[in-house]
């Protein structure tokens, strides 16, 4: 039973993540008045890429990417998915926060070995952007942990199921709003896709990847989409007891993200930071002050 519990979340995350990537292209196409590719196109691409030859730049180029994907898989094991959470006893939200670092660091190490200026610019922007959204995100997480007086994500979900969603409860709707405002930055979609920016720096960190590297990077991207959204669902929408409801909640949040992506043009990195450090930080900060006084 336990072993099935461990296998299920990563497999589901893989399927849902790739499905989201497909859906992403599909919705974007409809907004552009096109038909768009079939929903399983990302899966087809990944399988195709695994069969293509590619170039590489050294050992860290491989290891970094492997670490990055492995890190994402481990994060999925820590996130409650419906009722399933295989590693909830090994550490709470703080562990998740720190393991979430492995994926971007691994990608950055792998890309750095590529010795391509586009990659380095992409990484530099990625880290600056992540500092940009981490500051509001940390305030948000802290207000949740302080409010519920626990650092275990499983507990947070349970309390919400017994009372009401954090999104709808009094002091916590402020951080929830802030999270919604920074969600596109966490997912790395349009107004904040500075680190990949295909038209400026040729997809940034992805530029040297081909074949199996691109396949792994795509899977990693799918996982990170899954993680960003399911963290929101767990923190603010009360998680869920069953997988289907959980998935529907994720789908709603994801669709909002896609709409934002379709409408807004890309910001420059300074503009992005300025945006992230103003309204979201202010909201989260006020939320945290209220929470810590109450």
């Amino acid at each position: 039973m336990k072993s099935i519990e461990i296998i299920v979340p990563p497999v589901l995350a893989f399927i849902i993540g790739l499905f989201f990537l497909g859906l992403f292209r599909r919705i974007m196409a409809r907004i552009h008045w096109r038909y768009g590719p079939p929903l399983i196109q990302p899966l087809i691409d990944v399988i195709k890429l695994f069969h293509q030859k590619s170039v590489q730049h050294g050992i860290m180029f491989n290891i970094g990417l492997i670490f990055s994907l492995a890190g994402s898989i481990v994060v999925v094991l820590f996130l409650p998915f419906g009722r399933i959470c295989p590693l909830s006893e090994s550490g709470g939200l703080l562990v998740i926060l720190y393991i979430m670092l492995i994926a971007p660091l691994g990608l950055a190490l792998s890309g750095g070995e590529g010795a391509n200026p586009n990659i380095s610019i992409g990484i530099s922007r990625k880290f600056i952007l992540s500092l940009g959204y981490e500051i509001p995100l940390l305030l948000i997480l802290l207000s949740i942990m302080t409010h519920y007086k626990t650092i275990s994500l499983m507990e947070i979900v349970k309390i919400q199921q017994n009372t009401s969603w954090a999104l709808l409860s009094f002091p916590l709707f402020l951080p929830a709003l802030a999270y919604l405002l920074i969600l596109p930055a966490i997912l790395g979609v349009r107004p904040f896709d500075v680190s990949s920016a295909p038209q400026e720096i040729a997809s940034g960190t992805m530029v040297e990847y081909g074949g199996r590297y691109l396949a792994l990077a795509t899977i990693e991207h799918a996982f990170s989409l899954f993680i960003g959204i399911s963290l929101f669902v767990n923190l603010f929408l009360g998680g869920s007891c069953n997988i289907v409801v959980f998935f529907i909640k994720m789908l709603v949040v994801f669709t909002i993200g896609v709409f934002i992506n379709a409408v807004f043009p890309r910001l420059r990195i300074e503009q992005a930071i300025k945006y992230l450090w103003r309204l979201p930080v202010a909201l989260a900060f006020i939320g945290l002050i209220i929470v810590s006084i109450l």
């Binding site: 990563p10 695994f50 293509q52 890190g71 074949g211």
Partner: peptide, 21 residues
């Protein structure tokens, strides 16, 4: 968790088409 995930990803990586330095 990290070791096993690394191992699985590595297997996938090994099985795929090769790359040239």
């Amino acid at each position: 968790a990290i070791l096993i995930s690394c191992f699985i990803v590595w297997l996938l990586f090994r099985r795929a088409a090769k790359s040239v330095p």
